[in-house]
């Protein structure tokens, strides 16, 4: 995997550098600060939303005593709604950043299906995951397979969850609320809001499955691929582990 150490390279100022092999590895700044901040805020919001959402569907065991002494379900719902607003506002900010940020910040919002090299990349990465290719390709941004998974399972479903979520929220906020005016059309598609509840619940499971695959793929790629993954989403810098052509 690792390329031969460059003999001429020196690292200045490293105190305990003695016998180590020194690699000259290219580093690129990929994920700008707003993208990273959004990523982790969003991850936290999704975690909170999934946990509270699960409890909204299947509430914890009943509490004893007077109703006036408790507000448990009220708090669960409050936390769900608060996290939902953070997710929704974050998504809007993220869309804005897709316009003003670098080219990688747009990746989760579209699939370049018109590019043949992109399709070839999808196939290659899929074969790499099926153990049929020795090596993955190198990408500065998301690889095409990851981009596909993010677009379908994350971006579309997050949008779906925001829309159905606000539609359900509008039921409590009232038919004159802005939520009802903006998202009430959902009930034209599904007149019985029980259906919307059920679909919103399925959406949670799709996003949970996405999170599982996403975390697994990130860890696996961090170990197996030719570039850094997890630290990239923390520092924003992607380091390539080789400098080969292909």
């Amino acid at each position: 995997m690792s390329d031969a150490p460059h003999s001429g390279v020196r690292f200045r100022g490293v105190i305990d550098l003695d016998e180590h092999k020194v690699h000259d590895r290219p580093t690129i700044y990929v994920y700008e600060a707003p993208v990273r901040a959004w990523h982790w805020t969003n991850a936290l919001a999704i975690t909170v939303l999934a946990v509270t959402g699960y409890f909204i569907g299947s509430p914890p065991p009943a509490l004893a005593g007077e109703a006036s002494a408790h507000f448990l379900f009220g708090y669960i719902r409050f936390i769900h709604f608060a996290a939902a607003y953070i997710l929704a506002v974050g998504f809007l900010v993220r869309i804005y950043w897709g316009f003003v940020g670098n080219s990688h910040s747009r990746q989760i919002f579209y699939l370049p299906v018109w590019e043949r090299t992109w399709w070839a990349g999808v196939v290659h990465e899929a074969l790499w995951y099926l153990f049929l290719r020795k090596e993955p390709k190198k990408y500065v941004g998301h690889n095409p397979l990851a981009q596909t998974a993010m677009f379908f399972m994350f971006t579309l479903f997050t949008l779906f969850m925001i829309i159905t979520g606000f539609a359900l929220y509008s039921e409590g906020a009232g038919i004159d609320s802005w939520q009802a005016k903006l998202f009430g059309w959902v009930f034209n598609l599904f007149p019985n809001s029980m259906t919307v509840h059920t679909l919103h619940h399925y959406g949670m499971w799709v996003i949970i499955i996405f999170a599982m695959l996403h975390i697994y793929a990130a860890i696996r790629e961090d170990i197996m691929s030719r570039q850094t993954m997890i630290s990239t989403m923390i520092s924003g810098e992607r380091q390539f582990r080789d400098d080969r052509e292909d």
Binding site: P59, P60, A62, L63, A64, A67, S68, A69, H70, F71, L72, F73, G74, I76
Partner: peptide, 8 residues
Amino acid sequence: PHFDAGQY
């Protein structure tokens, strides 16, 4: 009130 309190 029982709904909000979490009493079912």
